[in-house]
Amino acid sequence: MSNDFLTPLARELPASVPFVGPEAQERARGAAFTARLGANESAFGPSPKAIAAMQHAATEAWQYADPEAHELKHALAEFHNVSPDHIMIGEGIDGLLANLVRLTITEGDHAVTSLGAYPTFNYHVVGFGGTLATVPYQDDREDITALWEKARQTPRTKLMYLSNPDNPMGTAHSAKVIEAAIKDIPAGVLLVLDEAYADTHRDLPQIDANTPNVIRMRTFSKAYGLAGARVGYGLSAPEVIAAFNKVRNHFGMSRVGMAGALAALQDQSYLKQTVAQIDESKARIAEIARAHALICLPSHTNFVAIDCGRDEAFAIRVMNELLERGIFVRKPAVAPQSRAIRVSCGPEDAMDAFEKAFEATMAKLA
């Protein structure tokens, strides 16, 4: 079939997606997973108050959501002690990234990121005709010095992407390091600081909301337990935030999702409880790894990277054996991080299932 209707750029793009979802894998294997521990979701679930709010909002689902997200935006502004014009709400961080790249990147422009970092950013950059410039990780952390230098050396660099805490390794830089780096952002470059895991990180930087060359990305998909609701938001200077209105889908948000996010934000005691459960789960995963003479990387997120102790090929075997045993996990894609598997935190029954499957896997691969 002819694809002449596609743009030249679209014709050249690879027919690929950043992730293969667990549902697709379940269909391929002909069975559901026993434990879903690969997508960094919160298996502890959302606040009961958020569930109740979404149930009520479902009765109003015949109405479009408020395109200004007025109530949630003002609640977030109060929470962060900023004005509402510092905040843009969107369909998760992924949706916000798509709009940001659309606003800033055209053919011939570059974006700088870490090799092996969160792939959706790359997906959008390439999809809008941009070119990626990458630097390797250093000691399983994104190398800020190398990223900044790459941006200076690369012509027409518009964006730098830094995830802190990091996905897929779970590592993080201190607030002091991030604050110092922000003072040295290369001229003409906007730093995309992805803080999806901010709620599980105890050393967040203090950044003036009026800083014009930084946009921070936050989400309700992780510790708040609302991945399926698709609610994220950006924090930046008003002139950066206002630009989103030129391209965003004004009716892209769901009334149900926004109601859930608002109730979740207002239930900080439940968030605190969830973070404590995440900490307990991280400790449990570390114990399981140690039982097989393996170590975990220090995690500032709601998942743990287990160093499988060998090379990528062995880590793939571990992951596939776990998948065969009904445990959905993922792994980093680029060496040397690809020697690890990534396991999301979860409640006790999920950890029990993971422990049993991991023990059988390591026994088989010994």
Rank of each mutant, 00 (worst) to 15 (best):
A283M: 03
P46W: 02
R218A: 04
V101P: 01
G92T: 06
I93F: 00
A39C: 09
A151S: 06
I87V: 14
A28W: 07
D140R: 13
L235E: 14
F220C: 07
T274Q: 02
R342T: 12
F244N: 13
H300M: 03
E91I: 09
V20T: 15
T171D: 00
M169A: 13
S2M: 12
S163Q: 06
D267I: 00
K272T: 04
F79V: 03
H173M: 10
T274M: 00
S114L: 11
D352G: 04
V82L: 09
A335L: 08
K282F: 00
T120D: 07
E312C: 02
A69N: 14
T59S: 13
F251K: 11
A313Y: 06
M169H: 09
L235M: 15
A259C: 11
L235A: 13
P212T: 13
A335T: 09
S236P: 08
D143P: 01
V343C: 00
Y64Q: 12
I207K: 09
A15W: 07
N40M: 04
E195T: 03
Y161M: 13
R27K: 15
D194M: 08
A363S: 14
G92W: 01
A259P: 02
L13F: 11
P136C: 11
H124D: 12
R152Y: 03
H292M: 07
A357E: 05
L13V: 15
F128R: 14
A264P: 03
W148K: 07
R152I: 07
S338I: 06
L322M: 08
R230S: 10
N3I: 15
F314H: 11
D352Y: 02
Y123L: 05
A77H: 09
D199E: 10
K331P: 01
F33Q: 08
H74A: 11
D4H: 15
Q63A: 13
A229D: 05
G309D: 11
A242S: 12
S83W: 08
R216N: 02
K73V: 12
I93T: 03
I89K: 09
N245V: 14
G309Q: 10
A357T: 08
I288M: 04
L97Q: 04
A28S: 13
L13T: 14
A111Q: 12
D267P: 00
G90A: 09
L262W: 04
H300N: 06
R248W: 13
F303I: 02
T200Q: 05
